[in-house]
Design a protein around this nucleic acid. Structure first.
Lengths: 337, 337
DNA sequence: TTGTACGCGTTATCAA
DNA sequence: TTGATAACGCGTACAA
């Protein structure tokens, strides 16, 4: 288990540890000859500089932490994919943390990361609670932090988001143009800024096109499949919407399941559009009209921003905001008859 | 940026560093009073023991590495979710590495992990190449390693797999019972043991039920959507299969797309079943019959096995194999007319 | 119960 | 170009 260390390797080569160390650092003066000899021996003995010793010495870890509400969600795994690509290119390692939308975990992860384990954090917030002061408390000595997609508006740090307001407006307008008059808006956490922004686009589109707003049509859902099924069936029974706009992918699926169960046909009786990064949306029955976020690109931008902060902090404004465009992709779930 | 260290905290408290250190370690002798005082001060000053210094001192990192062929794939993200749950419970951190099915990257990741960065590795292999000796070379001092799902058979290390042979046999038998006579088997990498095992189940089912085997019906696909589309259209044109069994999820989607393009109706003209962890398989058009692996559970088992190796190596046989059962879930894509 | 002192493996400074 | 040495921050023998 124990790997060979620099001292042993130096002894084998009859050199000092400093010389051996130099062979692994690019800048230092060392003769080509010696360097080659050392690298060859290193390979033979399977020597690699111990990362923890280096980190301790250099005060940086070449590691970034990624905190997301959940794994096993298309959007986040694709974003992580994007982050991974950039980080790998820079020779950085990635630590993954899933909060399960639990605020306590989020706080705990962030606090723990302040022990040198990571050089920076990329996070999509849980949004369970309203007290984010813990982030501000750390602010003087806060690790470089980039938000993506789900952000806390009261925390000033660079962020990568999408044009949610416009997308929501377009999606809602699309439903209206397809003939919907009673459009339900499904959301999981109204308090989360992303939920609010998306809702505002919905509200403004209704107003602009003269559709009366019915408070009941804003439906608060959960992360539980079972409870959502109950909530949605109740919604269909009581409110008879002819259009459904879901602020997250999962609720579009829940809508489909509820419609299947109740024999409500999409798009004849109700049209559905949802935010979703599902690549097989065309294969659904019916194919799902989506607001598709450039998820991988979001990850790429977020990682790039973080590295910019790490490499040249002076070039990054702490309120820097990168806005990417989502696309409304019209499919059969909103087809006119 | 610089966090307070143990020395400074000790000075503030008028205590020695060892006493402060003890407050954070559970086993050491320290008066409750002093401990509370230290922990309070630590909280106030936002002190946390530097992880790299601790790791260096203790020679372990409380970190495990997870290596997968790709992120953004339902199976792997669900498996990672399972791993995450167990690791978090043990207070371990998770490093993520995606190989993109690139053997070079896999080798590089593994080599780099041998510098103390991780205490153990959980991996699903890339399977691009046949030379896995690099793993054996490291074997005397190899990090504890657990394979899951996609494994190298020539490397002896604990593994968590599913009953692929049986599942394939059942899936093929199901197609036969639904009336299929010309069943194509779609695979991405024939050399990968998992491809072979699944194929054997298919072959044996054909034989048992007296269906003549046609070599052309074993179709080698790729990871590229575009190329697969060409390959599959060609297959439908030339071979006219009436059943398709896909060894990975992606190929089931590719089959759907090809059928859509060619106006081949599922299940009327061709029936489709595939290995898949897609949770919304019921929402596809038509709903997809799947062999569903317990992906999260696989992650849980793999992580548990790794921790067993870390905690009590003597209890783990290096050829220990955990086999979990997949389920054949019959849906409309294989319905009889 | 608390403090002193050393070493974990590395790299940077300085001297040779 | 190479070598000796100190320091990074922590945890633990050992001493008090």
């Amino acid at each position: 288990m124990r790997n060979i260390n620099i001292k042993e390797l130096a002894k084998v080569l009859n050199l000092s540890t400093s010389t051996v160390s130099r062979a692994f650092r690019d800048n230092s003066d060392i003769s080509k000859e010696t360097k080659d000899k050392i690298l060859a021996a290193a390979k033979e003995h399977n020597y690699q500089p111990n990362h923890y010793a280096s980190n301790l010495r250099e005060q940086r870890s070449k590691t970034i932490a990624v905190i997301v509400p959940e794994l096993g969600n298309n959007f986040f795994s694709q974003a992580i994919h994007g982050i991974e690509r950039i980080a790998r290119g820079k020779g950085y390692h990635i630590l993954i943390y899933a909060t399960d939308d639990d605020y306590e975990k989020e706080v705990s992860f962030i606090r723990h990361l302040h022990n040198g384990r990571a050089d920076g954090i990329i996070m999509s917030v849980s949004g369970e609670a309203n007290d984010h002061t813990y982030l501000n408390e750390l602010s003087q000595q806060r690790l470089p932090l980039v938000f993506f997609d789900r952000v806390y508006e009261d925390i000033i740090t660079p962020r990568v988001i999408t044009n949610d307001y416009d997308s929501s407006f377009s999606a809602t307008r699309h439903l209206i143009k397809q003939g919907c008059k009673r459009i339900a808006y499904l959301v999981i956490n109204k308090n989360l800024s992303i939920g609010k922004t998306r809702m505002q686009g919905y509200l403004d589109a209704l107003e602009k096109y003269g559709i009366p707003f019915d408070d009941n049509l804003i439906v608060d859902c959960t992360n539980s499949y079972k409870r959502n099924n109950v909530i949605l069936k109740d919604m269909f029974t009581r409110l008879k919407p002819d259009g459904v706009f879901t602020s997250v992918e999962r609720l579009a699926f829940a809508t489909y399941y509820a419609c299947y169960d109740m024999n409500i046909s999409i798009p004849q009786e109700v049209k559905v559009v949802g935010f979703s990064s599902l690549q097989i949306a065309p294969l659904l029955n019916p194919s799902l009209t989506t607001v598709t976020q450039p998820s991988t690109q979001i990850g790429i931008e977020a990682a790039s921003l973080l590295f910019k902060m790490l490499e040249s902090p002076e070039l990054v404004n702490s309120s820097e905001t990168v806005v990417l465009d989502s696309k409304l992709i019209k499919r059969n779930s909103t087809a006119k008859l």
